[in-house]
Design a protein around this nucleic acid. Sequence first.
DNA 1: AGACTATATGCACATTTTCGCATATAGTGT
DNA 2: ACACTATATGCGAAAATGTGCATATAGTCT
Lengths: 116, 116
Amino acid sequence: MRELVKVFRALSDETRIRILKVLLERECCVCEIMQALDISQSRASRNLGILEGAGFVKSRREGLWMVYAIDEQAMNSYVAALIEVLRGSLVNEEIILWDRERLSRAVRVGPRAIRK
Amino acid sequence: MRELVKVFRALSDETRIRILKVLLERECCVCEIMQALDISQSRASRNLGILEGAGFVKSRREGLWMVYAIDEQAMNSYVAALIEVLRGSLVNEEIILWDRERLSRAVRVGPRAIRK
DNA sequence: AGACTATATGCACATTTTCGCATATAGTGT
DNA sequence: ACACTATATGCGAAAATGTGCATATAGTCT
């Protein structure tokens, strides 16, 4: 039960839904998420952590970067079904399209270089 | 997007998940929900309202009682898929079994008569 | 009408959540 | 070792959330 609540809670936030929609396009490091959603570094990192804790996302280190990706084999629980729901949702939502657009221009370079 | 967040937020609370699991058994008036979950009247009413606002539940008046039920024809959006996820979840969760047990003994009589 | 019932809701309060800022941590390369 | 980079995290403030209490609302019945 606690687990199920955690899973839904992870999805009950616009930032995290946007992150998942971006990760459904392709895996990203934190700085790419920052650029795609145009949000701060701590906000990106924290919300990625919440998604990981809920089982939607896995991470691996790649040099300096932490690469986050949808955890496809996390088919254990309800997570897989919810990812499918998300995959079919918000297909024409404006902000999602913008995020995707910015993602396509994002580069794997850190927050220091982005200078906000 | 706002709608989707509202839907997930409605599920991100243990009380509301318990209510939905009870309503998946059968439709209930507010006082039956109170008895099944052993919670206060305002808590039952408010959370039912949230579930209704998110589209999971519909209500009809039946004399003094408001009867709430899973909104089966709200199959328009993600709601249907999420209800299916819930239907298959928590099948052996202790608290859910308790709720069901208390539901089976619940009577359609108001909070006044229940005397807590 | 008035008495009674079931449900909704305003208010206050405690708890939780989200986020920015600054700093800590971890890895790279000299 | 040191300088530099990307990410994680402690802390504090603002906002949102969940709940109980009391009361309002809506319906029934005599």
